[in-house]
Simulated scan of single mutants.
Amino acid sequence: MDAPDWPAIDALNMRLPLPDKRFVAQDAALLADGLHYEVRIGERGRIATRAENWHDLFNALVWMRHPAIKLALNARQCRHIATMGPHRRNRAQAALTQFDETGLVVRVRDAGLLAAWDRHDWRALFVDGAAQWRSGGIAVAAVVGHALLEQALLPGRLLVGKCVVVLGDDDAAGVARVAEAIVQGDVLDDPLQLRPLPLAGIPGWHAQQDAAFYVQTDYFRPLREGRVYPPGL
Rank of each mutant, 00 (worst) to 15 (best):
N53V: 04
G145M: 07
V178W: 06
R22D: 07
A25P: 03
P198G: 01
A48E: 03
D189W: 14
A75K: 05
P17S: 09
V166I: 10
F126M: 04
A115Q: 15
W117D: 03
G232K: 01
D27C: 05
A207L: 12
R79D: 08
R221F: 03
A11G: 15
D218G: 05
W122S: 02
R177M: 02
G136W: 11
L30S: 11
D100F: 01
Q216N: 13
H87Q: 10
D10S: 15
Q151E: 15
A147Y: 10
A116K: 11
R79W: 06
R91C: 00
L199K: 04
A116E: 09
A72G: 12
V39W: 10
V108L: 12
P17C: 07
A179C: 08
A207H: 12
Q193S: 14
K21Q: 12
A48H: 04
Q98A: 05
L114M: 13
L125V: 13
L199H: 07
V144G: 00
Q77E: 06
E150D: 14
A75F: 02
Y219W: 05
L192Q: 10
L35C: 02
W205T: 13
M1R: 08
D128Y: 00
A131K: 06
P67W: 08
S135F: 01
Q26T: 08
K21N: 09
L113T: 07
N13S: 12
Q193Y: 00
I202Y: 08
P17A: 10
R123N: 11
